[in-house]
Write a protein that binds this DNA or RNA. Structure first.
Lengths: 241, 241
DNA sequence: CTCGTATTCCAAAGAAAACTAGAATACTGG
DNA sequence: CCAGTATTCTAGTTTTCTTTGGAATACGAG
């Protein structure tokens, strides 16, 4: 095999990873997996795809080495192969956001949807270090507003889970007299914006954590898994089961 | 437009960048562009592609925002849109090298080709800081062994250019009594390995710079452009023209 | 203005990838 | 071992991407 041919083979191999990133559906699956492990069925539902289609896309991601599988009884859990994959995904979003004007627009458009009309454009945010300090001081409640499955897969230690769609009727479960810091998936996730709007409308003091689970994982700060705290009413509800 | 639809649009936009990375040919073009600006014709020749094909691929890269064009008279020079694009490309290679076993193998295979049989597996390398220190002390000659066009597009300040295929007959142009540090494109480039083999076979003391132009640019250290130094015999040759 | 050169655009053919429904497989729990 | 469930595989259809050669365009030189 000639030099030239070897070079072509090498680039063609690299392109397998590129190809894996070359489909909106697959990026959506990666985005979901950045929150934590999930079963095929679950991913299909979350991404609104057929089961066979989802499985096929996951195979492509697996061939490219971006995800790994773990069999748990009758179901297969997919997860990201490592932090470098999150970094690659993040870098892709950075470049796209910076270089493709349509991406910036689509992002703004998406983030604006679902928020109360007239809501402030930029909500007050807290950074990671500030959050950790205020948590240590016992000043704030950390609120995870993602779907429960994602909370179970991985969440910030000490955070309570109230999915944003349940927030209006469960807002009283949050300990009163404490400020709330809400977080969701990451920079491209709208849930925490909505949550802060809801909380403020209810008279609470609330901020958005500047980063989401995706960025949190990149820092290699610890995460908790499993049911954890489901807000103040948790004891009673767990008892019912 | 519904929430769901907006989300799909957003991911589909992100996927444009992914798609651009999903072809071996395009990655090869990016790799060439990481060395500096180049014309379409030149890129086509270097990547061994048809002119129309090359143009089409470059359009895809441009649509994805990864490259920009600069018109210079009758020809168009393509260049990377920014350092973040190099970072993205590097991260892609990292993940691929780490996660896809075939990539590691293809890379080894490619890097081994063209080198003298029985050559040592790992050549002594110098890092960037060591290089800068020894250059400042006037101890070493920095040798750029890439094709002349790439040297012209961008090179390490003070480096002399002898493309590796001309090295055997031009080795005497290098100032004697000085050690040589050779560099080429980057981690996936074989030229500097070959050059060090050649230099050592000729009795010179030579090292490989651990990084190439790609990694050098990422550090934001200065680069020079233009003809620059073409080794000691340059004055005579320039005079001939 | 015309010619020559560099690049892009266009249309058609061939190749690769995506989606779908249904069959096959792998595992659990009884 | 059997039934039930989660996932993967298969095959056919449709869509998208790649390549190619030739026409069109943009520019500079004369």
């Amino acid at each position: 095999m000639g030099d030239r041919q070897k070079k072509t083979v090498l680039f063609e191999q690299l392109a397998r990873v590129g190809k894996a990133l070359g489909s909106g559906k697959r990026l959506e699956l990666l985005d979901l997996l950045a929150q934590g492990e999930r079963s095929v069925e679950h991913l299909a539902a979350a991404a609104q795809l057929g089961l066979s289609t989802t499985s096929a896309h996951l195979q492509v991601l697996k061939q490219a080495g971006l995800v790994t599988t773990r069999r748990d009884g009758t179901r297969v859990h997919y997860g990201l192969a490592g932090l470098d994959v999150i970094r690659l995904y993040e870098q892709l979003r950075n470049v796209a956001g910076e270089r493709v004007s349509d991406v910036g627009r689509a992002r703004e458009d998406y983030l604006a949807s679902g928020r109360a009309a007239g809501a402030p454009g930029e909500q007050d945010e807290v950074g990671r270090d500030e959050l950790l300090a205020r948590v240590a001081a016992g000043e704030v409640t950390v609120l995870d507003v993602r779907p429960v499955e994602e909370y179970v897969a991985a969440h910030i230690p000490g955070a309570v889970s109230i999915p944003v769609e349940e927030l209006p009727r469960r807002i009283n479960e949050l300990p009163s007299g404490q400020d709330v810091v809400a977080y969701c998936r990451g920079a491209y996730c709208v849930l925490a914006y909505e949550a802060v709007d809801l909380l403020r409308a209810a008279g609470r003091t609330a901020w958005r954590l500047h980063e989401g689970m995706l960025e949190w994982r990149l820092t290699e700060l610890p995460v908790d898994t499993g049911p954890g705290l489901v807000a103040s009413g948790v004891a009673a509800r767990l008892h019912d089961q």
